[in-house]
């Protein structure tokens, strides 16, 4: 019972970006995944990437309102890593190799689909941001992501007043949206 409570607390912490919770999950699971990946034809960097991807998937799941984890955290992470790695192997190599590993797994296909969709969106956003150019990008990031007030931003960026900065910010946002949705349409 106690371990269940702990797991719930850990997931809550993860959802809130609590470094302590993330550290515990990281420490408890990384070595298992590392030896799994290395035993299955992967490198250290592969292990790190796959493992972090799995944590992000768990993070996204923990944040969703309908969240319910039906198994232990380590089973979930292992299952995700296994699926991710299998997929990666199929991409680079057409030979079907049996994968070695004896840990319990659960069905994670649905979560992975959601995660992949999100990853695609993030990639699109990153590309849009990268092609936005300065100072637009910094302005957008500072206001919408870092939530810095318009007054402070106006001073930082050297606008004569907050209203001018605001107008500029909106112009930038419109451009960013165009860049983003343009990809969306191509993507579909």
């Amino acid at each position: 019972m106690k371990s269940e409570v702990n797991e719930q607390a850990l997931l809550k912490g993860l959802a809130e970006n609590d470094t302590k919770a993330i550290k515990i999950i990281y420490k408890d699971n990384f070595n298992t995944i590392l030896s799994f990946i290395i035993n299955n034809n992967g490198s250290y960097d592969d292990a790190r990437d796959i493992f972090q991807e799995a944590i992000i998937t768990l993070y996204e799941k923990a944040q969703s309102e309908s969240f319910a984890l039906t198994c232990k955290i380590n089973t979930y992470i292992y299952s995700i890593c296994r699926r991710l790695w299998l997929k990666r192997l199929h991409q680079v190599d057409k030979f079907n190799k049996p994968i070695n590993g004896f840990e319990d797994t659960i069905q994670v296909e649905e979560d992975m689909e959601i995660h992949e969709k999100r990853n695609m969106d993030f990639a699109m956003m990153e590309r849009a941001m990268n092609s936005l150019g300065e100072p637009c990008r910094s302005l957008i990031e500072s206001f919408y992501i870092k939530k810095i007030s318009m007054q402070t931003l106006a001073k930082q960026f050297g606008y004569t007043n907050a209203d001018n900065a605001k107008t500029q910010k909106y112009k930038c946002l419109i451009r960013l949206k165009k860049l983003f949705f343009a990809q969306y349409n191509i993507g579909e």
């Binding site: 970006n17 992000i56 969106d121 993030f122 956003m125 941001m129 990031e141 919408y144 992501i145």
Partner: peptide, 8 residues
Amino acid sequence: QMEDFAAN
């Protein structure tokens, strides 16, 4: 979308 991206 932007916020999620930032969180990610």
